[in-house]
């Protein structure tokens, strides 16, 4: 197996995901196959030159930092599950 259970648990923590025991076994098998495929890249011998990265993509100038009218608060909150004119989350401090 290209990855072990400890690595999968670590990745789940980074990804804010979780699986039950059976799910962990399944995803470990799938991720091992996928990482075996990704390992093919190790056969390629070249060093990354970060001075050349994206040199063919034209990034435009950032715009001036001038305040302008943005979205209506109510409209932005229309998709939040639980609102009281703000985003409501579980208590963080008891």
């Amino acid at each position: 197996m290209a990855v072990d259970m400890k690595t999968i648990e670590h990745l789940c923590g980074l990804s804010k995901l979780s699986y039950d025991e059976k799910g962990m076994e399944k995803v470990m098998g799938e991720m091992s196959d996928i990482i075996d495929l990704m390992d093919e890249i190790k056969g390629f011998d070249l060093t990354y030159d970060d001075t050349k990265d994206n040199n063919e993509i034209r990034f435009c100038d950032t715009r001036e930092d001038i305040p302008e009218k943005s979205f209506d608060t109510q409209k932005l909150l229309q998709n939040a599950e639980n609102t009281d004119n703000c985003y409501v989350v579980p208590k963080v401090v008891e």
Binding site: T7, I8, L11, C12, L14, S15, L17, M38, F44, L46
Partner: peptide
């Protein structure tokens, strides 16, 4: 979607970043 998030975090995580993500960027240049 979950598999791809896990793979992405694997490629970016400490210890694997150079071997996978940076190598992929080198290949992009190639």
């Amino acid at each position: 979607v979950k598999r791809r998030i896990l793979l992405g975090n694997y490629a970016l995580s400490s210890g694997y970043y150079d071997a996978y993500y940076k190598k992929a960027l080198a290949l992009k240049q190639e």
